[in-house]
């Protein structure tokens, strides 16, 4: 039983990291009022870039860095269109997804399906990794797992809820006109946090192709970016909740993997539906069941609306 639990949690922590990273980035963008529906595309191109850069350089860290840069660059294009030019965010998000999916397949088809020579392998942290159940899951794997679930959410939480800058960020997402009136640079904050969110999405893609799978193939992101966007809504736009939700969905995929490994009499495609159906349930049920929670978990008021300084 303990063995089974450890195994499940280990798989969950590994697979859920992708969702957590991407969701954390999306929390940043949505808190400042930008819905970035391009996450799926930014993750794809991050995954492909990471694989290419890791092969070329022989280091997974270079791969991760390259993916972060590409994710940020893609998000900069998106932010240019939506923040600077104030174009429709839904459309530009979809466009970014198409661009990312298309470009990643175009640049990556030379390495498609190849096993990668360098990946983020397990590097157990001494002592901590021998804690039963949680030790192997969070400290016995690659060195990114621990930061994804604890360090990054803590940093983002501090930034958003315990600094003046974070207050400004949230003001930009809730009431940009008021923020503008007191001298907060609305457009700059929106632009740069959307770019930073894209960097997270790129990193999530790199984590997927260098640690989880680890290999690159076309269509490997398979909706994880969209699940991450849904998790942000489910998490009420809070970093710790977002990372936790990623872990929860890692657990749902881990149950699917377990079913395949143990030869449950359910076809693999049906088990693979679990994360999507789970996301759907988790996004609809809370709203239906706990109506009171709606306000506490509500989206930033100005989410999705471009900001126009009123005509003078």
């Amino acid at each position: 039983m303990i063995m089974l639990l450890t195994g499940l949690l280990t798989t969950a922590a590994l697979a859920g990291g992708v969702l957590s990273l991407a969701a954390l980035g999306e929390v940043l963008a949505e808190r400042v009022g930008v819905t970035d529906l391009g996450v799926e595309g930014l993750m794809s191109i991050g995954a492909a870039t990471a694989a290419l850069a890791a092969i070329a350089s022989g280091s997974p860290w270079v791969g991760l860095l390259a993916a972060i840069c590409v994710g940020a660059a893609g998000a900069a294009a998106f932010a240019f269109a939506t923040v600077v030019m104030r174009a429709n965010q839904v459309l530009c998000g979809l466009a970014t997804t198409f661009l990312g999916l298309g470009l990643s397949a175009t640049i990556g088809h030379s390495v498609a399906g190849l096993p990668l020579p360098v990946t983020f392998g397990p590097e157990p942290v001494p002592l901590l990794s021998s804690i039963p159940v949680i030790g192997p899951a969070f400290f016995g794997q690659n060195l990114l797992v621990f930061p994804i679930y604890l360090v990054l959410p803590a940093l983002l939480h501090m930034l958003l809820f315990h600094t003046r800058h974070g207050l400004n960020m949230r003001a930009v997402g809730e009431n940009p006109a008021a923020a503008d009136a007191v001298g907060v640079p609305v457009q700059a904050i929106r632009f740069w946090y959307t770019v930073l969110g894209g960097a997270f999405a790129g990193a999530a893609g790199a984590y997927l192709s260098l640690a989880v799978i680890p290999s690159w193939s076309e269509g490997m992101v398979s909706g994880r970016g969209w699940i991450a966007v849904a998790l942000v809504i489910f998490s009420g736009y809070r970093p710790f909740n977002a990372a936790g939700a990623g872990l929860l969905f890692g657990l749902i995929s881990a149950i699917g993997f377990l079913g395949q490994a143990r030869g449950w009499p359910i076809a693999a495609p049906v088990l693979n539906m679990l994360p999507y159906l789970g996301t759907l349930a988790f996004i609809i049920l809370p709203v239906v069941l706990w109506k009171r929670m709606r306000r506490a978990m509500a989206a930033p008021a100005a989410l999705g609306a471009p900001y126009y300084r009123s005509v003078r």
């Binding site: 595309g41 294009a77 269109a81 174009a87 459309l91 530009c92 979809l94 466009a95 970014t96 997804t97 198409f98 661009l99 990312g100 999916l101 298309g102 470009l103 397949a105 175009t106």
Partner: peptide
């Protein structure tokens, strides 16, 4: 590649 082109056109 055509998907990327579509994305560019849409953007």
């Amino acid at each position: 590649a055509v998907l990327a082109i579509t994305g560019l056109v849409l953007l």
